[in-house]
Design a protein around this nucleic acid. Sequence first.
DNA 1: CTCTGTGAAACACTTCACAGCG
DNA 2: CGCTGTGAAGTGTTTCACAGAG
Lengths: 205, 205
Amino acid sequence: MEEMERAIPRATVGRLPRYLRCLEETDRSTISSSEIATAAGVESAQVRRDLSYLGSIGTRGVGYDVSRLRAQISLLLGLAGPVRVAIIGAGNLGQALAGYAGFGAAGFEVVGLYDKDLRKVGRTVHGQPVHPIDRLEADAGAGLFEIAIIATPAEVAAGIVAKLSNAGVRSILNFAPATVKAPSGVEVRTVDLSTELQILSFYRR
Amino acid sequence: MEEMERAIPRATVGRLPRYLRCLEETDRSTISSSEIATAAGVESAQVRRDLSYLGSIGTRGVGYDVSRLRAQISLLLGLAGPVRVAIIGAGNLGQALAGYAGFGAAGFEVVGLYDKDLRKVGRTVHGQPVHPIDRLEADAGAGLFEIAIIATPAEVAAGIVAKLSNAGVRSILNFAPATVKAPSGVEVRTVDLSTELQILSFYRR
DNA sequence: CTCTGTGAAACACTTCACAGCG
DNA sequence: CGCTGTGAAGTGTTTCACAGAG
């Protein structure tokens, strides 16, 4: 039997962070769907439909209570407590990510980097320890982090995804320019500069 | 009257770069839809449907001619000649992007950075000149680049998008954590770390 | 009277399944 | 016979439009 009580569409999940940001930027205590819509760049009916999945509690004639709605969305996105993030690969990108101050503000906590190069292991990068890549699977299995960010060369990305998903990690952000098939139950989001530019190239002129 | 001859679905455009990469990685001269599908992590029917929008020329019983197909996809994505890219914002991210070697390999050419800080203007970053931000609109209008990458603080992102689209730029990659509404006819793709992590947080456990 | 929540319609995208070409 | 190309069916998402709560 399938679980189907709270089937929130992927498209909706993808927009909730945007709504959350709008809510954080306003100073009013109540906000209507069309105000959120304008700020988020979508249709107001879309906002109402999306928020209705939260078992929503807007007030007709008024709108949504900002702090209540923030709490609801944060809860749904699993942002109630701190979310721990591991960075795989301590090269240029991995180090830049480790130093990114935005993590804390958004409730994420970097718990370490993993690298193959033993000369890097044991050092710290922006205050974060660099661990040997051999320890990755065990640490993942022990539940030391919830989300993994892959910042390795493309050749090894698929292997890392396999290890992580074996160890029970369900959320992976992949910055390697490689197409990796997500094992079922695992969400892999790939962000690649060349891919983005190629898509944009289609839409020019 | 609307142009409708070649309405290629956005979802298809988003997958073409992946197919292109598979084609670049194979050493065979012919390839079937299910082979592409396996490599790209999608269904074979999806590949055939997507490729059929290219006015496709597979050979029944055989598959697709790799070099022919590469040429077709490149052409459709507008990658036939070099595509010029400007980087707006010469801070950490902008500088890192300017130094990213992957541009050339994928047929993109960085033509310069733009920054508000006059102390940076006139310097070069990884061989790229830094121009004053005032010149952005004129340079864009003069057609000096096809794609703009926004690597500025969030506060100024919306204004930059407005200037660029005024000047006729149709393709924008936005790394600022800001929701910008794309003027019609302009494609804006936003990539933001916090948003990605928040989405992934939903799918953990 | 305003603004939510939601059936129902419209639209977009994916998958099935098979006719038919090479 | 193998594999493409595509009608048709299925699924997911957006938009319309309005009943009804506050």
